[in-house]
């Protein structure tokens, strides 16, 4: 098989999931090659977070398969998925409030993929905190951070696991333009370290500059896929966003 492209790090094969009468995901299928940043966009309620939840085992999909590094991890518990080298952040930040920032990140390093003992986990945590720019807050309780800092903490904790694949759920939402620019730099730097990234964003323009490829979800359906430029000019995508004129406008601005 020489000369063929290497197996994608993540393969989503015909994944479907519904909640009661609501089809949150229908037949979602795509591959994510190693080392890329794949953007996942779509209007609110499109099923983006649900897809993350199916990937990392919050709940199993009803149909389809999730293949990570050649292994079928469909329906595995989140802690088992974490140990295979897949880490994620949450759209609604989930800090361990009564623990310090440092303890939060140590936990990420010592329970995640590489499973380090505490002393080594601490070193990794220190590096990661410096990397995301939270070093000076390391001894504060996580509860005391502001929103932007909590997003960074969420990212630091996932990174400390040293994953092969990082799932980022709206890490840019709620940040001001300066903070967004900083965060985008951090995301790029993570990719440059060799980590593959699947990143969700509600609005598109933020993702235009970082994504190698973009997939658009709407009502659980995959309506477009391609380079950021292709997707931004796809009439189906523009239509999907038309229900929300403000977003449609933001998309245009991004071009």
């Amino acid at each position: 098989m020489t000369g063929q492209a290497q197996t994608p790090i993540l393969q989503i094969q015909a994944v479907s999931k519904h909640f009661g009468g609501l089809q949150a995901l229908s037949n979602v299928t795509f591959d994510l090659p190693e080392g890329q940043i794949l953007g996942l966009i779509g209007p609110n309620g499109a099923g983006k977070t649900t897809l993350f939840n199916c990937i990392n085992g919050i709940y199993p999909p009803e149909q389809g398969h999730v293949i990570f590094r050649g292994r079928d991890i469909t329906g595995w518990k989140p802690y088992r998925v974490a140990r295979t080298g897949l880490a994620r952040t949450h759209q609604i930040v989930q800090p361990l409030n009564e623990l310090t920032v440092l303890q939060n990140v140590i936990a990420g390093a010592s329970f995640g993929h590489e499973h380090h003992p505490l002393s080594q986990a601490r070193e990794i945590a220190d590096q990661v905190l410096t990397f995301v720019g939270l070093a000076e807050r390391r001894d504060a309780l996580a509860a005391k951070l502001n929103v932007a800092q909590k997003k960074r903490l969420e990212l630091a904790r996932a990174l400390a696991a040293r994953p092969y694949l990082l799932l980022l759920d709206e890490v840019l939402a709620g940040l001001n333009p300066t903070e967004i620019a900083e965060m985008v730099d951090v995301v790029r730097a993570i990719r440059d370290q060799g980590v593959t990234i699947l990143i969700i964003e509600h609005v598109m323009h933020a993702l235009m500059n970082v994504s190698d490829r973009v997939i658009v979800l709407d009502y659980g359906e995959q309506i477009a896929e391609g380079s950021p430029d292709e997707v931004a000019n796809d009439p189906k995508v523009i239509e999907a966003y038309l229900g929300d004129p403000k977003l449609a406008q933001q998309m245009m601005l991004a071009e």
Binding site: I58, H90, L96
Partner: peptide, 13 residues
């Protein structure tokens, strides 16, 4: 970690 947020703890491993 379980005490603070059991679901998040499981996601961390």
């Amino acid at each position: 970690a379980i005490r603070e947020n059991e679901d998040a703890a499981e996601v961390m491993g």
